[in-house]
Design a binder for these strands. Structure first.
Lengths: 168, 168
DNA sequence: CTTTTGGTTTTGCTATTAACGAACCAAACT
DNA sequence: AGTTTGGTTCGTTAATAGCAAAACCAAAAG
């Protein structure tokens, strides 16, 4: 009776963790949620000369509908990767890649490892009473690796930032 | 006439680059191609005690069909994250997370930045004759960032590896 | 005030994907 | 040989994603 309660309790705990880790892996896969068209749009803007293009030029180059371009632009604008400006006396918007935000977005992505570290630590904690310590050692190596990487990465990012400030 | 040829030639070049970068961003989004079920399967195996489970137990816990589990297992096996073994005198396979491969896969993922660096360098090279040097400077910052990070990362990885050897 | 321009929003279609059920198969047991 | 066990493979189906057509809208131009 006691045993059964413990077992179902344990299972509920596992289900909770499974959900959490499962969602993380699922998200990780989709990550930036960039569609094929948005990808090509970004590529077009980053390569084009001048590095800003209006709505019509974009539809022409990518041979896509207005609605699709509008949607793709909206997505890229929301992520900050793309913004626009206008010339006075010209109603058209000119869209361009915001290279500063691009940099920020990339920096953010590198922080992803921190989340993975947290999960790995949770896993190890979860397994601590298991008698399969050989397996746990494997998990521990992963935790150590993430620790090493996140710390090193944090360090790299800070150094780079301060380097930028001093040479500005 | 000359001008027209140059223009169309340039456009073809852009199309080529757009395709390349577009595909990269698209891939990056999908990355590991892990399905929701595969994610939960991995999570279950990494949390379960003992850290190996047979086919039936997996279907029971995840409440999924045999075919779905079989497919998810195949995907995880192909990536190397999961493998199996048998006990002699027991026909069932016991599936488990291969923590060593997990580590390797994570290390590989960190190398992704190298590809991005290559692309960013190509972009800068592609833009070198543009008169919009202010924009190009923004791209250059991104290139420098990737350079800094890939080098630092390479360094981190090597240090970690040699550290592992010495403490083994 | 009506028309045009430069987009956006809504709605619907199509292709892809995730998961399933059923049939199937090889190995082991009877 | 026939049956059971432990899966795999092959269509199908349901959900989702990506794109487009059409209707819409605000601001500027006529």
């Amino acid at each position: 009776m006691e045993k059964v309660n413990n077992a179902t309790e344990k299972e509920a705990l596992i289900r909770e963790q499974v959900e959490k880790i499962g969602v993380f892996l699922e998200q990780q896969a989709k990550a930036s949620a960039i569609t094929p068209l948005a990808g090509r749009l970004f590529a077009f803007l980053i390569l084009s000369d001048p590095p800003y293009q209006n709505f019509y030029d974009i539809t022409e180059f990518l041979q896509a509908s207005k609605s699709s371009i509008s949607t793709a632009l909206k997505a890229l604008e929301q992520s900050g990767l793309v913004d626009y400006f206008t010339f006075s006396g010209d109603r058209k918007r000119y869209f361009r890649v915001n290279t500063k935000k691009w940099l920020e977005v990339e920096q953010m992505r590198l922080q992803q490892a921190t989340i993975a570290l947290g999960l790995a630590q949770d896993i190890l904690e979860f397994r601590k009473d298991s008698k399969h310590q050989d397996f746990n050692e494997g998990v521990e190596k992963v935790v150590e690796f993430y620790e090493y990487i996140t710390l090193g990465m944090q360090d790299l990012l800070e150094k780079w930032k301060s380097e930028q400030k001093s040479t500005k």
